[in-house]
Structure formats: structure tokens, C-alpha cells
Design a binder for these strands. Structure first.
Lengths: 345, 345
DNA sequence: TAACATTATGTTAGCGCTAACATCGCAAAC
DNA sequence: GTTTGCGATGTTAGCGCTAACATAATGTTA
């Protein structure tokens, strides 16, 4: 009477019984059908179907000392930028044998560290983390993890393991250069949240303006508030009030840029003639806006897909072509930075 | 030499050893500290810290026949509407002993069914699924699941277990009534994706227009394409070209509404005087737009939080106050449907 | 045909944890 | 002083699966 009862669900032993084979054969047939003869495989598959057997992933993870979990940690769930990469990851992994486990670090490094710890406790098959700005401890944990690790949304010389993304510095620089080239004179930066990636965009922007002889530290406005369209509208107001001579602004992301557009429109300022606006990421809405908004296009979906490909290649025993992949960006010039000739005075 | 080696990580036995107690005592100390004396608890906590012990969740799940996983299935990762509820769920569960496992059904019922099956295979502590439009099989699987199940983003008389959300029918009706009350005459519906929830919004809208004597089936434009700002701009174009007399439009979500605004602006139509626009959900950008956009505000974060509270209450042995919770919505009237008196001709 | 590979399948012993029962120590009750 | 009750701790046997070794069945070579 000491016996414990499981959840009553059919187990691999039930399948083995029904198919008249041993449990290990069922296990093999399910994990790698090529290890089992056609004859038995058919019988096993039938039994599986009849019993409606679903493998118990925890038991499998325990026995094999590795789980089918892919741990993914992003700093935000509502930021569309990460949502796109996530979608790619789910598209690629959602179907197969892997389970994506998602963590939200909320831009807090300590939270990220906690999540990494928890996830590694599950012995994941792979880890995907956003960015390169982990704490030392987090980095060390991931370096010691016995699984492939991909950092996404950034590039750098010294990845934990593999990395795929683009250079925020170069992106910011391209935005700054574009505004200079368009003939804008007093070019500002409007940044919310100001996570490390935004900081790198700002650094690139600064370099471009210095190069163009237009750098003015008083034209940099940042906040730690999280970015939103409303905040963009609010801040461009304040910015213009303080510096009425401002004639262009690089927003650290597209929400802020759209907000800046609305803010200017409310203030009766013409975009692009009175003020030029450029955003970052090129979310879908940027092209549809009126006037359409210039932005730095990044391919977040491709980043997610690429990360998955790198992982799959490592898990199947291959060595990935490159451990550092820069997918770049593309300046999308639109109306919001295209002044009429007369305005370029 | 037959021995297998684990992953080398410290186990509960190592902790027990170091603390000079049995494994079950460690297990108890970690799961319910009140079951163990202060004295031993302190020693155990020390040992845990020194060894950097992380419990092996799979082993725990196997032994206890239930996991600490909360399965969540949503139809889209990029749709901000679900992202907000997800954020609430992660905020509430992310800290504690539970692991959120997220699935993306991509609006495909069969995919949802597959995910439910997979998730239930892990014996989750609870399940959260979006909407009420599961397949019969999915519904049955969830009804038989031995865990609390919460449907979110919708309400209905006949939940699988519990449900929290709002009525899309009533929301659509409120939108329609508002446009009628504002004096618009030829009121259209613009709907993308047209998932079941959008259909219910449309039904509510129809009822309102019929009630107001303004219903015209020719003024309903829908597509199965997924909604986006660009699509909204594109479709309002087509709509106005086909029916130049259109003077108001209810968009099935805010992205479409924002797109419609941009489309009208490009076409030189004044919003709200030539065309009134109302959206659905009231995403943050709606208030910031120029002109600001009327919408039906829903509190997605509260829905997620509420779902978690219901689950926690059931898991702690209580009976939730209500199994069906309607959090309602609120009409946010803004400029896009507020015509000047002269325009109401 | 013997000797040896090469599969295909089986047996056994865990993976790390917890349920179920057993025991122990100590205070209250008789 | 024995009995009873109860909370704190321990012992044992799995949870459902797979690694590692064992063995049987088949093919291959000289």
C-alpha cells in the first residue's frame, strides 16, 4: 500500500506494454526513429496514438540531465522591438521539440541575473539574452553554462559565446550624419529610458555631430522614464520651449519619434521644414505616418531567426560559420527629414 | 562503474550532508520553512548559500507530479493588447516560485490545441488562455486538466473554469452608439484580421447602428490580413474611394485607427469634420495623436493581474469570489469624433 | 565455417526530488 | 509515572524517463 500513484496519465511503460516492446525501445522510437526498425516503430506509433500518450518532459529532463528548454531573456515585453525577435524565435522553436521559456528582466540587470540563475537551474538546451550589458556574475554564469548562448540585438568583439545584431553606435552615427547632410543646424537628441543600447546610439550620434561641427551638449535631452508616444510629444514640447532654435531631433526610438511628430503638429511646427525628425528601428507605422517618418531600419525578425539558426547548428554538432554576426541597419529616408529647398536657408 | 553522473551541480543531498540533516528536511525547509525548526532552517539556508544550490525543478516536478509552470497561450506576441496582459502575468509570477511558459498560437485554433496538449504534458500549476474560441478538443482538454484555467480578454456565461475580460460585443456597440450620437450619418466599419473577438465587436457595432437607423452593410469592410497602421491607411483610402460619402469609421483596433487617421490626412480629409474615427483598446498613442483619437479603453494589465489573482486564490485552496469577471471598458472621447457644430450639417 | 563487425533490442540502475509512512522527543493529561 | 498527542525529523520507495552496459540477431570477411 506504499505505492504512489502518478497523475494517471499513460506512461512510456504503458506504451511499451501495448506495443509489446521494452520501454527503452519506445523511448528510442520517439527520440530518434531511425534507431528502431520500421516494424516496431509502426506498432509503437500506434500505441502512442491509441493511448494518447504525451511524453513527460520533466522525467525526460531529469533522466537525460538536460531539458528541451530554450531560455530567452528580454528586457521588455511591450517594446515592439523585442516582440519581433521573439516572434521569430517562437516561429522557429514553437513547432519542434523545444520549449521556449521567456523571462522579462524589465531592464534591471539584477533581475536578469536572477532569471539566468533560475533558467540555468533547468539545464536549458540553449540561452538567448538581449544585449551585451550583463553583470559580471551573469556573464560568468552564462560562460560556464553547458549550452550555447546567443546574445541578440547588439554586436561586439567579445561575446559570451555567440552574438547577432547590429551596432547601435553606428546606427546613431548614421542618424546624426543624415541630419547634418540634410542641412539641419541645431540638431538635438531626444532619449527616453536610456538603456545601454540607447547610450551607444547617443555616442554614435555625438561623433557624427562633432564630425559635422554641429555638436552642442545643450541639445541633448534624456530621461529615464520609459519611452512612449505621449512622452515623445511631451518632451519635444519642453525641448522646443527651452531651445526654440532647435531644427532637428534624433529620437532614440520610433515611439518617441512619432510622439515628437504629434507634439510638433500640436505646436504648429512644420515637419520637416521647421523641425526634422528621425527615429530608430523603423517600426511599421513610420512609413504610414503623415508626414512619413525617417528611421534607422533594423531587422529584428531576422535577428531572432538567425539566433535560432546558430543554436540549431551548434546543437546538431556543427560549428557555426561565424560567432559574431552583424546584420546591420539601413537608413530609411522619408518626408520627416526631407526639407524643401527653400527651407534649407 | 555503472554509475551515472549528474550535471555536477550540487543536489539536495549535498545540502543535507553539509547541514547534517536528511534530504527531506532540506526539501521541507525550502518548500515550507514553517515545517522546520529555526535551528535547522538556519543551518540549511547557510548550506544552500555556500553550495550555491539551485533546486532542480524537473526533479521536483517529477516527484511531486506537478510542476511550477503556469502555461499561457496568446494568439500574438506583437499585438500590444496581449503584451500588456502578459506583462501583468510576468510581473506577478516572475518573482515567485512559478515559471511562466508562453505559447503563441498565431490565431490558429489547431496550433492552440497543439500547445495546450504540450503544456498539459508538463502538468502545469495553472493555464491562462486568450479568448473563448477554443476548438472542442482544446476545451475538453482544458476541462479535464487538473489545474485552474483562466480565459482572458473576453467574458461569457460558460467559461471552461474561470474567465476575466470584457465584452467585445458591448464595446463595439458603444463605439457604434457614440458615432451615431455624434451625428455621423454614413458610418463604416474597418476591420483587419477579424478574429472572433473582432467579429463580436462588429456584431455589437451592427446592433448599435440598426438601433440608430444607420446600418448599411455596404459600409463594412473587412480583411483577413493582419492589422497594421499601414494597412489602416491603405484601406481607408480604398474605402473612401469606393464610398466618398463615408463620414465616420469604427476601426477594429487602434493600429487600424491610427492608420486611418494618417490615410485621411494624406487624402486631405479633415478628421473629425470630414470623417470621424474611433478605435478599440485605447493604446497609449491614441491620446497623443494629432488630432487625438477616440477609442474604447480596456485595461489589459488589470485583466492579466486579475487572472493571476484568481489562480493564486485557487492554488492556495480558497474559492474565488467570482468565476466570471467583467472588467468592462470605457469610451474615451477625443478629438477624432468631436465635430465642430458647423460640420454636423 | 569460424571469427568478427554491426545492428536491433533488452536489462538495470539511476537522474534529484518528494509522498507516504515511521519514529522520536517532549509536553500535557490522567 | 504511564499514557496520549503532536510537532519535528527520518527512512524508504518511487515519480517517468534514459544512460550505460548486455545480449541477441543479423551480416561480413577471410
Amino acid at each position: 500500500m506504499r505505492k504512489r500513484k502518478g497523475a494517471g496519465r499513460p506512461t512510456i511503460a504503458d506504451v511499451a506494454n501495448k506495443a509489446g516492446v521494452s520501454t527503452i525501445t519506445v523511448s528510442r522510437a520517439l527520440r530518434d526513429p531511425s534507431m528502431v526498425s520500421d516494424h516496431l516503430r509502426r506498432k509503437i506509433n500506434n500505441a502512442v496514438r491509441k493511448l494518447n500518450y504525451v511524453p513527460h518532459s520533466h522525467a525526460s529532463a531529469l533522466a537525460s540531465t538536460r531539458s528541451n528548454i530554450i531560455g530567452v531573456i528580454v528586457p521588455s515585453l511591450t517594446n515592439n522591438v523585442f516582440a519581433e525577435s521573439l516572434r521569430a524565435i517562437y516561429d522557429a522553436f514553437g513547432q519542434g521539440a523545444f520549449q521556449v521559456q521567456l523571462g522579462n528582466s524589465r531592464y534591471v540587470p539584477a533581475e536578469e541575473e536572477r532569471l539566468v540563475r533560475t533558467f540555468l537551474g533547468q539545464r536549458p538546451s540553449a540561452m538567448i539574452v538581449a544585449g551585451t550589458d550583463q553583470t559580471d556574475v551573469t556573464r560568468q554564469l552564462l560562460e560556464n553554462a553547458e549550452c550555447p548562448v546567443v546574445q541578440i540585438m547588439d554586436v561586439g568583439d567579445d561575446p559570451i559565446d555567440m552574438i547577432v545584431g547590429f551596432s547601435h553606435f553606428e546606427g546613431g552615427k548614421a542618424a546624426g550624419l543624415h541630419l547634418v547632410q540634410q542641412g539641419y543646424k541645431r540638431i538635438g537628441f531626444l532619449g527616453a529610458r536610456m538603456d545601454p543600447r540607447s547610450h551607444r546610439r547617443l555616442e554614435g550620434f555625438k561623433e557624427a555631430l562633432q564630425f559635422g561641427g554641429r555638436y552642442d551638449p545643450d541639445l541633448i535631452m534624456t530621461t529615464t522614464l520609459s519611452s512612449s508616444v505621449s512622452l515623445g510629444a511631451e518632451l519635444i514640447w519642453q525641448f522646443c520651449a527651452r531651445r526654440p532654435d532647435l531644427d532637428a531631433v534624433f529620437c532614440n526610438n520610433d515611439d518617441m519619434a512619432l510622439g515628437a511628430l504629434f507634439g510638433c503638429q500640436k505646436a504648429g511646427l512644420s515637419v520637416p521644414d521647421d523641425i526634422g525628425i528621425i527615429g530608430f528601428n523603423d517600426l511599421e507605422m513610420m512609413a504610414a505616418a503623415h508626414p512619413s517618418l525617417t528611421s534607422i531600419r533594423t531587422d529584428r525578425y531576422a535577428i531572432g531567426r538567425h539566433a535560432v539558426e546558430m543554436i540549431q547548428s551548434v546543437l546538431s554538432g556543427e560549428t557555426p560559420d561565424k560567432k559574431i554576426v552583424d546584420l546591420g541597419f539601413e537608413l530609411q529616408v522619408r518626408q520627416s527629414t526631407s526639407r524643401s529647398a527653400s527651407a534649407k536657408a
